[in-house]
């Protein structure tokens, strides 16, 4: 079976958050960033599941960071987008923009 090459909605949002957060991209701020824009709660489990999928496709990489007492001594896992990931994001943006441009003006939207 051919490997899926397009990005899902959550996957794209996560990649955008990871790029936006830079060095501080780990589970908690990533989920906050998505919640801020989407306006509803996002489960950390689904964020990690999507990050694992992205890592399996080589779109993100991770490193273990520091642990703090409020985390029960458990280390943070920091993520960053790889070159392949960035290319994939650009490609997705290009396709989406092209498709939006090809649409007629939607009802309620100013031309």
């Amino acid at each position: 079976m051919a490997e899926r090459s397009y990005l899902g909605e959550l996957e794209l949002m996560i990649l955008l958050s990871v790029v936006g957060l830079g060095e501080e991209a780990y589970g908690v701020p990533i989920s906050h960033e998505i919640e801020k824009h989407v306006g509803r709660e996002v489960s950390l489990g689904s964020v990690y599941a999507a990050l694992e999928r992205l890592a399996a496709r080589g779109l993100v990489a991770s490193r273990m960071g520091e642990s703090t007492p409020e985390r029960g001594g458990k280390a943070r896992r920091y993520f960053r987008v790889t070159k392949v990931g960035l290319r994939q994001m650009q490609e997705t943006r290009r396709v989406l923009q092209q498709m939006w441009r090809s649409l007629p003006v939607l009802r309620g939207e100013r031309p």
């Binding site: 703090t68 409020e70 458990k74």
Partner: peptide, 11 residues
Amino acid sequence: NEALEGDLLEE
């Protein structure tokens, strides 16, 4: 997934 466990505790 230690990172997830830590994230939940942090929250």
